[in-house]
Simulated assay, not measured.
Amino acid sequence: MSTDFQHARVALGARLRELRTEAGLTVRELASLCAWAPSKVSKLENAKQTATLADLDTWARGVGQPESSTELKGRLRGLESTYRSWRRQLAAGHRGVQDAIGTQHDRTSRFQGFTASVIPGIFQTADYARSVLSRYAELHGVERDIEDGVRSRMRRQDGLYSSGKVYRVLIWEAALHVQICTTDTLTAQLDRLMSVNGLDTVSLGIIPLAAPVRIATGDDFWIHDRRLVIAESWHTEMWLDSSEDVALYSRVWDTLNAAAVYGHHAHRLIARARASLELT
């Protein structure tokens, strides 16, 4: 978990504890008023669990200060505007998540991206995107509107044919082999990747498995015009717009890029991954 995210959650927990103690309530007394187990009160105060909006309403009523709910929700929204839980986002469906990214995509002219385990969304076929979104929906237990999410993701690919956009993308070679979909779907996806590699808006680098690297590959991320970074982990999506964060991810991208191959060398790695599928 991000240190910044945890610090923000600790601050929210401290404020919840302050409200409880000001009301003269013990953990058990507040839990009883809220119809919760005492362990939930303890987890919220000690930043072991992130409150929901409903939790904050209940807490504010329980401590006899319903008006404090607005302040508490403001703290939570501030926390989640940067660190966006996948579970919470996907509870409203895939389309909302994809549309939000699409809005940033429309605002951006220059992209620098890195993916370690899947083909980037901007290059995905519909079948491959459907497989990826379905698997992650299963992981978070929120399977719904997969097709709307796929359509939203596909619409972003119009940018590949726009003279006003540039995509500088790095892919770790392992992503070419990960069978998160059927063999036929992956074969078609690799064919698609070879075709976009020739577009004048695309600069595609592949980092070979055996390449010497100065840093290990990590989470996937996209830099938008050096003003915003959208990075992903298993539990959250991070939208980082501080100059320090953007500069850090730019250095990471440059460092990874030093190990990447381009042009016919990249094409050869994609073709090799495709050929290996014929042997399975």
Rank of each mutant, 00 (worst) to 15 (best):
G164C: 08
A137Q: 11
T125F: 07
R168Y: 12
G164A: 10
G113I: 00
F114H: 04
Y128Q: 08
V166H: 13
G159M: 12
A129I: 03
G164M: 02
I119E: 06
D127A: 05
T108R: 10
R144D: 12
S162G: 15
M154Y: 10
D158T: 15
Y161G: 01
H140T: 04
T125Y: 11
F111H: 13
G159D: 08
Q157P: 09
A126C: 05
G141K: 09
V118M: 12
T108L: 08
S162M: 10
V142L: 09
E138V: 05
V150N: 01
Q124L: 00
R130E: 14
K165V: 13
R168P: 07
Y161L: 12
A126S: 09
A126H: 10
Y128I: 01
R144A: 09
L139M: 08
L160M: 02
F123K: 00
E147R: 02
R156T: 10
A137P: 03
R153C: 06
V150C: 01
Y167P: 06
Y136H: 05
V166W: 14
S162I: 10
V166L: 10
S163Y: 08
R144E: 12
R155D: 12
A126V: 07
Y128V: 03
A137T: 12
S109N: 14
P120H: 04
V166R: 15
R135D: 14
S109G: 15
R144W: 05
E147Y: 01
S163D: 15
R135A: 01
R135P: 02
T125M: 05
Q112S: 15
S163R: 12
L133C: 01
Q157E: 14
D158N: 15
G121A: 04
V118T: 14
Y136F: 12
A137V: 05
K165R: 13
V118W: 15
R168W: 09
A116E: 02
D145I: 05
V169G: 03
R151T: 08
R156I: 09
S163P: 15
V169K: 06
S162D: 15
G149C: 09
T115Q: 07
A137G: 14
G159R: 14
E138Q: 02
Q157V: 14
L133R: 00
D127M: 03
F111A: 08
L160W: 02
Q124F: 02
S109R: 13
V132S: 01
V166Q: 15
D145K: 08
G141F: 10
D145V: 00
Y167G: 03
G141Y: 12
T115Y: 05
G121P: 03
R155Q: 15
L133Q: 07
Y167A: 04
S109E: 07
R168C: 06
F123S: 01
I146K: 05
T125E: 10
R156A: 04
R156K: 06
D158Y: 15
R110Q: 05
